[in-house]
Design a protein around this nucleic acid. Structure first.
Lengths: 135, 135, 135, 135
DNA sequence: GTGGTCTAGACCACA
DNA sequence: GTGGTCTAGACCACA
């Protein structure tokens, strides 16, 4: 299933800038090893159309990813994932989630939820997602 | 333990506007039933000083919470939590977390983590927080 | 003469992107030691107005300089030159010119000019500039 | 030494479009008198291969030079330098350098270099080039 | 077709 | 006042 993992998801309600969401997702996909070095990303035009956002927003995200060394520009072709040795370790990938987990755990606590109540809703969201994307 | 739970936490690295983080936290605290109707919030001046942010940012958050009917302005006294019947149900409080959970689960999936690997890091973060705030 | 050296010059005929010219000039001014750490740059709006270009172009240049660690953002105030130890060495500053010198020398050679003929025109341009900017 | 001077040099790091660099170099070579009227330029295919760039880029440069009256298209043969009376005067050829010199002198000034420090690095670059290309 | 640069202008967060 | 984000759209360089 080529490109199956190159689905981007934008959460506009979160307040997180769109270009940042794109950056974080590309980083995640590359770290997961699901997107191999050499993979061509959707073109700026294509992704902008898919997400119904402006080309410049995508361009900005790609430009930053290029300057981070995660993507490389191929003239006339598009943006490509730079060669990567291997998948990052589980611990490293878990660490990538920290910025999202900290606020969540704080909020759950403030809501007076227990650890198990939080985990329950996570598990349910995870399963729902799997059912959804297994297609 | 009055006001014990009125600790705010700002995550500047997340890209989420500060005033929004305040709003969401007040909402969470009220929904949790931990903050009873009538509770006085820290003054704008006080909270701005505590969080080392601008007073206008706090003011804006409070104003929105007032217009949502969660807080009420008491002349000469400050902002007060409006009378609430009871704690929201667990399900309702879990639902409050959705905007934070969706991006997290998506990111975890993109990182190629399993449900259990995600839950493990959540549990660990939760326990760490409890140890930290039990003080 | 405060800010005397914070004059930017854009050469639109050169084909070099405007934002790049700004970046290079800020780098040069900082390397020269003429612009001390802490100096406030002209605001995005101001510089855009002065140079009669779009704010986003200036913003892009400033953003890159920030990510290079040369500038830092001060909330509500503007962009500031980050603390620098000292002026770069003469050799280092001369090295900064290489990208401009190589094409020039190549062109001069292709024009059949001698070293002295090239130097003569450089000296004259330099003196003219000094007369111009000594004001 | 026929064609000895028909070496093109592309500086990709400068941000100046490749086609423009080609145009400027042809102009310089012709103005220098080193390339006489009637001289055949390398074919589009050849030059594109040499410089490892796209044929369209060369083609565009040649087309503009043709419209400027510097080159002429010879059916079945290629692009030829149009008859020129004589070498341009030294002053004229020096004037051709202005677009390159202005930004250089400005940058040198911004770097806090003196006229002599600038000239020193120019002389050194010139000599280095001579040593290199005398072959 | 690809990405890059730039504009004019809107609206936001923050000091 | 400051910078940040985003849009809609133009035009360019290059494959």
């Amino acid at each position: 299933m080529p490109n199956a993992s190159l689905e981007f998801e934008i959460h506009t309600s979160s307040g997180v800038p769109i270009y940042r969401q794109i950056i974080d997702q590309v980083r995640a996909l590359v770290a997961s090893g699901r997107v191999a070095g050499g993979t061509l990303l959707p073109s700026i035009r294509q992704l902008a159309a898919d997400l119904e956002i402006n080309m410049m927003t995508v361009s900005k995200a790609y430009a930053r990813l290029e300057s981070e060394g995660i993507l490389e520009r191929v003239r006339g072709t598009g943006m490509r994932v730079r060669a990567r040795r291997t998948q990052a370790s589980t611990a490293d990938r878990q660490r990538e989630l920290e910025p999202l987990i900290e606020p969540l755990v704080a909020r759950a606590d403030q809501l007076g939820l227990t650890e198990n109540q939080l985990v329950a809703v996570i598990r349910s969201a995870f399963k729902e997602r799997q059912a959804w994307t297994r297609t």
